[in-house]
Computed example of a mutant assay.
Amino acid sequence: MGDGSRQEPAVWRIADGLPQKPALGFNSFWQIPDKIQNSLKVHFGRFLKKDAAGRGMNAEMSSEMGKASCTAAAPEVSLDRQLQAWRNNASWTDEPPEIKVTVPEGSLCNLNLRFKAGLPPDAVYNIIIDPENKRVFKNIKEVISRKVLLDEGSRQVVEVEQAAIWKFLWWSGILSVHVFVDQSRKNHTVKFKQGRTGFMRKFEGCWRIEPIFVDKEVCLPLHPCTLEEYESCTGGRGRVASAITLDQLIEPALLPPPPISWYLRGITSRTTEMLVNDLIAETARLRGFSSNADGKQDVEEIGGASEIPPGSECGDIKERWRQRRKRGRHGNSLRLTSQML
């Protein structure tokens, strides 16, 4: 440790790629004959060039690591702050979902639904993963069992068995659905896949939720790309909505021939559309909490997915949404029929 002969080459001063002044402990170097000295100069010159390159690379890596740490250390945008922006301005127009129906070989149908909701991605994500979300989705009768298999903080893998309500013509009944759910808050994705097979051979899909910067015009001429940038340029007053996609593949154990398969496909499409409309209705109800007398309770249920106390305004919002869905039902049915044909 104290040996001067083990000084690092970095203590040398370089000019024209060659050492100009020896470090401590190398005084005898200048008394070596010229031929040997020149050879050593070339050797040490190459070594120092490599060392300089290595130090440049290390500096670059340190810079990148510093940038990464800054990114990782950036404060997360608070859901409460996003909800406050909606409390200040709750104006939003809900639109019916866009539905695309395809029929892969051997399957009943593949559904792709795209829609928007006037709440932040975290709030929508909380509704979807809520163990008690049967209060939102009318086709869920009960949760038979729920077990967390993996918990990594922002990501969980959950085994769920639900009793779902089905209807076909004048028949109806209860169908048990057993799925494994991989839910990630970091990416705002909820992937599900069937566990035990039964009536369905394959039932799988994925929810994807992405942010929409509703008030991004305030940031012009800047164009925010992240929630942090958006919050910064709007002063924390910009509203964040959600663009939601649901992909779902359904393959029954026994694929019926037409026209029964056509009826089943239509029923499946309408059932999934009802599921999405229930979600949109719930976001509309929660978005109206600014005028509720019990607004604090609504904020808590968005963040923690707690039970909802019944209220007259809640019923009014849902009734208005049901009337709107009823008015658009015929147009949606015609669109679905044309897509299926």
Results as ranks from 00 to 15, higher is better:
27 N>A: 15
27 N>M: 12
28 S>H: 15
28 S>T: 15
28 S>F: 15
29 F>M: 09
32 I>F: 01
32 I>E: 02
33 P>W: 03
33 P>T: 13
33 P>H: 12
34 D>W: 08
34 D>K: 15
36 I>E: 03
36 I>M: 08
38 N>C: 07
39 S>M: 12
39 S>W: 06
39 S>R: 09
39 S>K: 07
40 L>V: 03
40 L>A: 05
41 K>E: 09
41 K>T: 09
41 K>R: 15
42 V>Y: 10
42 V>N: 10
43 H>E: 08
43 H>N: 04
44 F>V: 15
45 G>F: 01
45 G>M: 01
46 R>T: 03
46 R>I: 04
46 R>P: 00
46 R>L: 08
47 F>L: 14
47 F>Q: 14
48 L>K: 14
48 L>T: 13
48 L>D: 09
48 L>M: 15
49 K>G: 00
49 K>Q: 03
50 K>V: 01
50 K>R: 12
51 D>T: 10
51 D>G: 05
51 D>K: 13
51 D>P: 00
52 A>M: 01
52 A>R: 05
53 A>L: 08
53 A>N: 06
56 G>A: 14
56 G>K: 14
57 M>G: 09
57 M>E: 14
57 M>L: 15
60 E>T: 07
60 E>S: 12
61 M>T: 07
61 M>H: 11
62 S>G: 01
62 S>I: 01
64 E>C: 12
67 K>Q: 09
67 K>A: 09
67 K>C: 03
68 A>I: 02
68 A>L: 07
69 S>T: 10
69 S>K: 15
69 S>A: 15
70 C>G: 09
70 C>H: 10
70 C>M: 12
70 C>Q: 12
70 C>W: 06
71 T>L: 13
72 A>P: 00
74 A>Y: 00
74 A>K: 10
74 A>P: 00
74 A>W: 01
75 P>L: 05
75 P>N: 06
75 P>F: 09
77 V>Y: 11
77 V>Q: 08
77 V>M: 11
77 V>D: 07
78 S>H: 05
78 S>V: 02
79 L>Q: 04
79 L>D: 05
79 L>H: 04
80 D>P: 00
80 D>V: 15
81 R>P: 00
81 R>C: 09
81 R>E: 13
81 R>W: 06
83 L>S: 04
84 Q>M: 14
84 Q>D: 12
